[in-house]
Nucleic acid binder design. Structure first.
Ligand SMILES: [Mn+2]
Ligand SMILES: [Mn+2]
Ligand SMILES: [Zn+2]
Ligand SMILES: [Zn+2]
Lengths: 143, 143
DNA sequence: TTTTAAATGCAACTTTGTTGCATTTATTGT
DNA sequence: ACAATAAATGCAACAAAGTTGCATTTAAAA
């Protein structure tokens, strides 16, 4: 039997990281919010008895190891979400965009079904980030 | 005869803003860097005898009045660039993407020739921001 | 159980951004 | 050209956000 906690433990150990209670709580929070991304301030509220510094370091570690990625990065707040299994210590691979709903203010990862082509002659494209703002399907249909 | 300074003065007065030396220096800096965007830290260096607070307030004013816009907004640094004449006190209108070159580290505004369609059924799209990283045409051709 | 490197907590610090208020200055009208 | 005035600026004090060094604790391996 493989509980969700066990799978998170495995995820950490695969990346040579220790499965500490703080890290598991952090990841469980992100997992529960899938497909919505979570801000640092929400993480801080949830982990209120954890030192700020530890959370900063945890985020940095998870980014480096390809466990989480930044979704809808703005100057005000950064949203974090779990990566899929494509990402590793080596590199991140995401073929999705980030949608911020101005109604429910949720940031979600949305899969890109068709590949998007940009006409930039003699440019080399390495990374594409797409942020869209509007009203999400839930808020739009639930009139 | 219409010097560039005069045109900048006119731009400010059209938006009910006073043409102060600081504001003209600020806009001249952005104009000289076109089509590259400029970070706050670069602005601060250029206007080293201007108070930080004034620069923060100048940026906010220019954003509100549709004179500048944020290009390649990240948590670390925000890049600012002049708006085209479409933008006003009412709203910003941009149909271009922002390209960050990992070689020369310049952020440039690139026009979108063809409109990009996203397949997001029952979503309402209000704003689209596209950030691309890679190697720009100048760096790519100058091998 | 013991060992040990990794992870955490704490304190001090830096950097970045904000607010209130006094002073200065660009613009308008005389 | 000068005076009046509202806008813009500078300064000080503050608040928020992020960083660093180091001592202590703990997960994982022996
Ligand atoms: Mn995502
Ligand atoms: Mn732009
Ligand atoms: Zn919504
Ligand atoms: Zn370049």
């Amino acid at each position: 039997m493989d509980t969700t906690i066990d799978s998170l433990k495995k995820l950490l150990q695969e990346r040579d990281l220790r499965a500490t209670p703080i890290r598991l709580e952090f990841l469980e929070l992100l997992r529960l919010n899938t497909p919505s991304a979570v801000t640092l301030s929400v993480i801080q509220e949830a982990c209120h008895n954890t030192d700020r510094v530890t959370l900063y370091r945890t985020i940095q570690t998870f980014l480096d190891k390809g466990i989480i990625h930044k979704a809808h990065q703005s100057k005000e707040e950064v949203y974090y979400a779990l990566c899929n299994s494509n990402c590793s210590t080596k590199a991140h691979f995401h073929d999705h965009l980030h949608f911020k709903c101005s109604s429910c203010s949720q940031v979600t990862c949305q899969h890109l079904n068709k590949e998007i082509k940009f006409l930039l002659p003699s440019f080399q494209i390495n990374k594409v980030e797409i942020h869209i703002e509007g009203v999400c399907n839930r808020c739009n249909t639930t009139t």
